[in-house]
Each structure stands twice: as C-alpha cells, then as structure tokens.
C-alpha cells in the first residue's frame, strides 16, 4: 500500500500532479488554503494509490514524497 506525503506549505496549487495521476486520485483541496494563499494538492483516496511517483516527478516544487 503506497503512501503519499504532501508538504502543503510548499505547494503552489498548480495542479500539474493532478494531470498525471494514473488513478485520478489527486485533487486540489477545496477549502484548505496554505500560507501562500494556494489550495494545496492532496490525495482523495490513498488506498487506490499504486505508488508510481508520477505526481512527484511532475511537481516543480518537490512538494510530494512517495513511499511503498
């Protein structure tokens, strides 16, 4: 079972991770806003995560850590 950790304060809500997740389980937080005023990205259903790391590879700000 894979684990995805978001450093939410570094996230700029650009959504690139969302575009590459094969399982379509990444989305920007609806309510939560980080210190920079962005809606940070997050995993909607971690159980479906296959730990491929695509999101982390696509992220320009090294926000995401992926473990298996």
């Amino acid at each position: 079972m894979a684990k995805v950790i978001f450093d939410k304060e570094r996230c700029k809500g650009c959504g690139l991770c969302e575009t590459v997740c094969p399982k379509k389980i990444i989305a920007l937080e609806k309510e939560e806003i980080n210190q920079k005023g962005y809606h940070p990205a997050g995993v909607t259903d971690e159980s479906a995560c296959i730990g491929c790391g695509s999101c982390a590879i696509m992220c320009p700000d090294t926000v995401i850590k992926v473990e298996r």
Binding site: K12, L16, Y38, G51, D61, T62, I64, K65, E67, R68
Partner: peptide, 20 residues
C-alpha cells in the same frame, strides 16, 4: 521503501517560480 523524495542536490529554499 521510498519511491520518491526530495534530492539533497537542492537546498531547503522554496523556489520563487510561478505556479506550474
């Protein structure tokens, strides 16, 4: 087992680049 983590080749500073 770590699949992906931030490289030590970058400092801790946050990047100033625009989102995306």
């Amino acid at each position: 087992m770590v699949v992906f983590e931030k490289t030590k080749g970058l400092t801790e500073n946050e990047l100033h680049y625009c989102p995306g």
